[in-house]
Design a protein around this nucleic acid. Sequence first.
DNA 1: GGCTCGTACGTACACCGTACGTATGTGACC
DNA 2: GGTCACATACGTACGGTGTACGTACGAGCC
Lengths: 219, 219
Amino acid sequence: MASPLSRDLIVRTAVELIERDGVNAVSMRRLAAELGTGAMSLYNHLPNKAALLDAVAEYILVGMEFAADPAADWREAVRSLARAFREVAHRYPRSVMVVVSRQPNSTIGMRPVELALATAQAAGFRGKAAVQVMRAVVNYVLGCLVHESSQTEARWAADTRPLVDPAELEAAGLVNVRELLPALAEHDSEADFEFGLELLISALDALPRTAADAAGFTG
Amino acid sequence: MASPLSRDLIVRTAVELIERDGVNAVSMRRLAAELGTGAMSLYNHLPNKAALLDAVAEYILVGMEFAADPAADWREAVRSLARAFREVAHRYPRSVMVVVSRQPNSTIGMRPVELALATAQAAGFRGKAAVQVMRAVVNYVLGCLVHESSQTEARWAADTRPLVDPAELEAAGLVNVRELLPALAEHDSEADFEFGLELLISALDALPRTAADAAGFTG
DNA sequence: GGCTCGTACGTACACCGTACGTATGTGACC
DNA sequence: GGTCACATACGTACGGTGTACGTACGAGCC
């Protein structure tokens, strides 16, 4: 064998394969062929396919790059964290659903959680409030990524954009959809993402704290 | 055949099967066996398995029950709408990911969009702003549902709760995770959901309008 | 009767995950 | 050097998958 077939190599190749041909194209045989080996050789490094996908999810999660400055304003930290999630999701667009659809069992996968909690505490939230704040932001970001992923995958499989017929909408009584169809059609995921994020940040800003010791809290 | 095997019956049975044994347990053979027929008979009513899953998604989407009072405060309408999403997700917990992971191609699937847009307009947002507001809330709700679904599925497959070792967290430098472990452990999905929802509503409330004609807008 | 047509059944194929048996190379100890 | 144990790779095989295709049967119509 040219390369000695390690767990890491297998996982990286799996990610490549997912990004190239989609999740459904990943099979042990196909992946092994990609690596120039037999399907069963993979099982020396991974117990089963589920473990492979778990490993893919972990690999991607670990690939997150946080540029958060701990000294910075917590609002900026929230933005930075949320964008880091989104950035990695854009780096591996077709693997997003793999990550999302399996809960992180590994300790290493908790690093984002750690940073998010640290930020929530920096914002002045303690205990259960910190957890709730984190979950609110994370759930929002998660929703955005799933939404974007769904669109991306659609574009990949897109024979044509269906783009419903206005007359049909009228008939179905969907007047608001029809009226706002141009606004619905132009998808600026970036702007949408930032809009909701700022919404949440401003709401958090206005929230009362148990202790007014939020870093950068000025009024 | 006892029952004449219609598309609707097939789809309903598929939903039952997903809820009972999970998405992975759904195969054309298994589903056909459930219906007391052969696998290939299903193809008289559905072109392929993807279409079946699309139909399942649509079936569930259509099953949403909106109790929104158009005359009510728009904030209450947002709550009602968001809860309707969550309620249907709880009614079909194991089918959530099926719905989420395929974009709605059908006109009928746009009914929630229609109501959400109507609510956004009732809140005083027009045009692109209305769409962005809707997307922000929808994405948040979506994230919550995916999160909850992930946990639900985990509980189904749960041999044991892994529940990481505090010492291990310490070693990995995840001090915040360790400190907030009790708060992280007690999952009150309901409370978390409502918390984030109120966060968004309050932020929307504080947002400037292009026209101050929001229904129930008093401040 | 015969014709068409929609529905159901059965077989067949290529592919899937993976259990299991086997080969091959490598380092440890005598 | 001999001969172990062991890790890694390969091959075969089994049961299951989606579905293409051929066949059969019944209802409606001439």
